[in-house]
């Protein structure tokens, strides 16, 4: 454990729990009570961790061959007992949160040629206590760095992609682009989506430095056809396009 200060981490944890006591979403469906079907023991530390891994795989857009997984906060402190490490690796292999192979994810990773290392670190107070930072390298050599938080009840949020601040829940079809920060790119993307009858539920564009690269994450109500992704890839301003399927 790097730079572990118990009382400080406890304070952070309490702050986080207080945050969770704020007004919350109404539970509508009986299947949110009788369910979800999942591999235990914890919806946040196991099921949510699988989702984070699987979203990272989708964002890489390739079969991962190497992963560095940094566990932060409560993830770092309890990952062995909750199987958070195995859960994230299972997600990287494309497993769902109710897949019984999660328990044996490490041996499946070996069989499928995914090398990984797991370390713990304090990423900083600004991160949710159930957070993992995952650096992935794919078969074709492409790399990506994803930070995801498990925010309770198995719900997750991807909060960073390659250092860009994002907010991706993984409950929608999501289009993610990394593109040049010049006028008109967002308009091109949204008009293409509109022309195909795809409705935007939530959209967010961020950049690190003005005039360099920007990252758009667009959650939509419909399936995104493959040719839309291909068309976007042909735009010269857009470097990376990913279609993340809901999990």
């Amino acid at each position: 454990m790097e730079s572990h200060n118990k009382s400080q981490s406890e304070r952070k944890f309490i702050k986080h729990v207080r945050g969770r006591c704020m007004p919350r979403r109404r539970v509508e469906s009986v299947f949110e009570i009788i369910g979800p079907v999942m591999v235990g023991p914890s919806s946040s530390h196991t099921a949510g961790a699988v989702r984070i891994g699987r979203l990272a795989r989708e964002l890489l857009g390739d079969r991962p061959v190497y992963a560095k997984i940094v566990l932060h906060g409560s993830f770092a402190e309890t990952y062995r007992g909750h199987g958070t490490d195995r859960a994230i690796v299972a997600g990287l292999l494309g497993f769902a949160p109710d897949d019984e192979r999660i328990r044996d994810a490490f041996s499946h990773a070996k069989r499928e040629g995914l090398k990984f290392e797991i370390v713990t670190a304090d990423l900083g107070e600004e991160y949710h206590p159930n957070t993992a930072k995952i650096t992935l390298r794919g078969e074709k050599g492409e790399t990506i760095e994803v930070v995801g938080s498990s925010i309770g009840g198995g719900h997750v949020e991807i909060v960073e992609i390659n250092g860009f601040l994002v907010s991706i829940s993984g409950t929608y079809h999501t289009l993610v682009t990394i593109h040049r920060d010049v006028p008109g790119v967002a308009a091109k993307i949204t008009s293409l989506l509109a022309s195909r009858g795809i409705n935007i539920a939530r959209m967010n564009i961020t950049r690190k430095v003005r005039g360099e690269d920007a990252c758009a994450s667009i959650e939509v109500d419909q399936e995104i056809p493959e040719d839309v992704v291909r068309a976007l890839e042909r735009y010269p301003e857009i470097r990376i396009v990913r279609h993340v399927r809901p999990i």
């Binding site: 009570i33 369910g35 999942m38 591999v39 235990g40 023991p41």
Partner: peptide, 21 residues
Amino acid sequence: EYNASMGRICAAPTAGSAGIL
């Protein structure tokens, strides 16, 4: 116990209380 050891369960209403129903 099965839940604690990464078995497949149906939360009811949560994973921690999944044994009762």
